[in-house]
Design a protein around this nucleic acid. Structure first.
Length: 384
DNA sequence: AATCAATTCAACCGCGGGGTT
DNA sequence: AAACCCCGCGGTTGAATTGAT
């Protein structure tokens, strides 16, 4: 025997809501507040299922809903959050004030998933890449279609509800709980994309690193990175500085900003360190420098030093800063889906060749022995 | 003008989690 | 512990609407 229906459907109205029904629902909630959805329709005199009332209220009638099309900023946020959270629409919506999970889900399905086909890859395929959709020059294959429904609703009546009690205010989108977000599993990243031939989660590549640094780096496990000397902290610690791959003020991404620092200080600085770290769901690339200007990046997380934060290249906290999904690391130097896939392929190849090389000395990788081809490939990839 | 195909999105559905009895 | 209830979530559906033919 199946589960009993949430409500008795006999005699209940279904389908589109009329303005009269909307008005009844609004007035009732203004008087009684949200909640008790099951009993609400009966008490309010609506011939609707409680679920339907809840949905109508949450998705349509609430006073704090933002009307209008999704802005490019919101779209970018959706893309980045989705890259980290997957289809957790309600969670994503909680970071977009005035937007509902349903709205975001619809927007994703109708706009983004088509525009950015790589998002549709299953988790058994390669990792998703977050593209700068604004640059993805892939026109929607619209033939017929219609304009935004909001744009068409000239005659629709909306209700201004000044006195509706706020039962459950949503979080501000710009104040995400960074640590919570970071600790979330990323279903789309579950697949490890190259063979795990290493015994350790963490590998230090530069033999020139001193003992202290080596010790710090060795602590960089997937679950808790802690590199005190470099002032790099893992998620889960209060002083976590969690950042995305983009310099937010520069929508071009990390190119030219953080990226240059990483390249200059990590790859090109003889005192720099490059570490490959096996992350929770994927392999990450992390770079360090000598502690002056440094940062590191990964496909899963990105952390910058205080120097970089002070320089304004990163926002560093959840109170004022914005953040980006670090799995979007490639977006800054990516012009679209195909390019993203290409980069990912290059990344895979490069990392694979590193893993398989003979330059490993225990957990360390001897960069001085690195062949020029591999070195060039690494630089080329990072510069790409 | 009529028809078709594409698209959007409001609404529905089933399920799972958490709380209560 | 088990049964039940309620809520919220994510996937899906289908009506409404559009531009193309």
């Amino acid at each position: 025997m199946g589960r009993a229906p949430c409500c008795d459907k006999v005699g209940l109205k279904r389908g589109r809501w009329t303005s009269d029904e909307d008005e009844i629902l609004i007035k009732y909630i203004q008087a009684n507040g949200e909640g008790s959805w099951r009993s609400l329709p009966k008490n309010a005199g609506l011939l609707r299922c409680g679920k339907s009332c809840r949905l109508r209220w949450i998705n349509y009638l609430r006073s704090d809903l933002k009307r209008g099309n999704i802005s490019s900023e919101e779209e970018e946020t959706i893309i980045k959050l989705h890259s980290s959270m997957g289809n957790r629409w309600s969670l994503i919506a909680s970071h977009l004030p005035g937007r509902t999970d349903n709205e975001i889900k619809n927007y994703w399905n109708s706009h983004l998933s088509r525009r950015i086909p790589s998002f549709r890859r299953s988790s058994s395929e390669t990792l998703p890449m977050v593209m700068d959709s604004s640059k993805a020059d892939i026109p929607p294959k619209r033939k017929g279609g219609r304009t935004s429904r909001w744009a068409m609703k000239k005659n629709k009546t909306y209700y201004i509800q000044k006195d509706v009690p706020k039962i459950k205010p949503k979080d501000s989108p710009l104040t995400p709980n960074i640590e919570e977000v970071l600790l979330l599993p990323t279903p789309d990243l579950e697949q490890e994309t190259f063979s795990s031939t290493t015994k350790d989660d963490s590998m230090v590549l530069d033999p020139k690193v001193n003992d202290n640094e080596r010790e710090s780096l060795a602590l960089c496990s997937d679950e808790a990175w802690k590199c005190e000397n470099q002032r790099l902290y893992a998620s889960g610690e209060k002083k976590t500085e969690t950042l995305g791959p983009h310099d937010h003020d520069d929508q071009e991404g990390i190119d030219g900003g953080v990226f240059d620092d990483i390249v200059d200080n990590v790859l090109l600085d003889p005192d720099g360190v490059l570490a490959l770290t096996k992350g929770r769901e994927s392999y990450d690339i992390i770079g360090f420098s000598d502690g002056n200007d440094s940062g590191f990046m990964s496909s899963d997380k990105m952390v910058a030093t205080e120097d970089l934060q002070e320089s304004g290249q990163f926002s560093s906290n959840g109170d004022s800063g914005e953040w980006y999904s670090c799995s979007s690391i490639t977006s800054g130097f990516d012009d679209g889906v195909e390019r993203g896939n290409e980069i990912w392929d290059e990344k895979e190849k490069m990392l694979s060749s590193l893993w398989e090389s003979d330059n490993w000395e225990g957990d360390s990788y001897n960069l001085s022995e690195i062949d020029s081809d591999t070195h060039d490939a690494m630089v080329a990839w990072l510069l790409s």
